[in-house]
Amino acid sequence: MTNDAPAQSSVPTSRRTRCSAYPLDPAKDEAIRAAVVQVLAEVGYSRLTMDEVAMTAGVGKAAIYRRWSSKADLLVSYIDMESVAGLVLADTGWLRDDLVILLTSIADLLAGPVGRANRALIGILHENPALFDAYRHGPLDRWSAAFTEVFRRAVERGDITPDAATSVAAEAGPGIIIQRWLITGAALDEELVRAVVEQVMIPLLRGATRPPSP
């Protein structure tokens, strides 16, 4: 069994405004990112300020403005970074195990401080086109790509049909996890993930669209 390590994340230079010719300290980058997560989770989007982020990060406000020109730029960069952090894409040779590992990594992310920070952003995404675009092309696209890869391997092994890989059955597992995270607030853990994969996803994917008999 081989598990690919989570992708190492960094704030892409294309997502932030460089305001200084001097090299930027990576340690301050990490401190600022951690502060964004903490402040968003604690006070929400409307009360998040550059001053509060700077104080929480233990840096001067100028250190933030050397990297990002506005609150919106900072949050767009955070969303882009967060979409990579913690995501685990494994190739175990088994559809069930690949799904459990991937969904568990997402559930762990949503259950922690990053999940609370993201919940604070969800309500304002449609009011801010830049944030909505960052979310759609960040977490949503990258998580979708991870599931697409898991299903692609399963199709190649003959576990499921190509139609099953693109059916609504493929969305059932993530849908349950997101509903619990965003609406009910129920616990997200590996036990839940295994139940979702084994009782919902696998039967739907294999039962309704079983590969034709030779």
Rank of each mutant, 00 (worst) to 15 (best):
F147P: 09
A186F: 11
I124R: 15
T161F: 00
Q38I: 08
N128K: 15
T209Q: 03
V197P: 05
I32S: 07
K71Q: 08
Q38G: 08
M201V: 03
D25C: 03
A90M: 07
S46A: 15
I79P: 10
R15M: 15
S144E: 01
V53K: 10
P6F: 04
V200E: 00
P211Y: 00
S9D: 04
A31W: 09
S213R: 14
D141R: 12
G58R: 00
H137Y: 15
A165M: 03
L125F: 09
T148R: 15
G185T: 01
L87P: 09
P212H: 02
I124H: 13
R18I: 12
P214M: 07
S144P: 04
P212D: 00
V53G: 09
L192Q: 01
Y22K: 12
A57E: 06
G58Q: 00
D108T: 15
G123Q: 03
A165G: 11
I124E: 11
L192C: 01
A62D: 01
D108H: 13
A41H: 10
G173I: 11
R96H: 03
I160F: 00
D98I: 02
I160H: 01
S46D: 14
F151A: 06
L192W: 02
D163C: 04
D29Y: 13
L99M: 07
I202Q: 01
V193E: 06
I183V: 15
V168C: 02
L205E: 08
I176C: 07
V11I: 13
A117S: 05
S105P: 06
T209N: 03
A35S: 14
D98C: 03
G60P: 08
G44F: 05
A154M: 06
V76W: 01
P26A: 09
R157G: 03
D25I: 03
R66M: 03
A208Y: 08
S70T: 08
G158H: 00
D73I: 04
N3D: 13
M50N: 12
V37W: 02
V43N: 02
V84L: 12
Y65N: 10
L75K: 08
D141K: 10
P26V: 07
T104C: 05
E30K: 13
W181H: 06
V36Q: 02
V197L: 13
G58H: 04
Q179D: 13
W181K: 09
M50R: 08
L74C: 11
V155D: 00
D25F: 06
E190L: 06
P214T: 05
Q8H: 10
A187L: 14
L109H: 13
L188D: 01
I106Q: 15
L103G: 02
A107E: 07
A21E: 13
I106P: 07
G112K: 12
L110Q: 07
T17F: 11
L182D: 05
E82Y: 15
G115V: 05
Y135E: 06
V197C: 14
A41F: 06
R157L: 02
A27C: 08
A165R: 00
A146G: 02
I79A: 03
A35Q: 12
D29Q: 10
A27G: 14
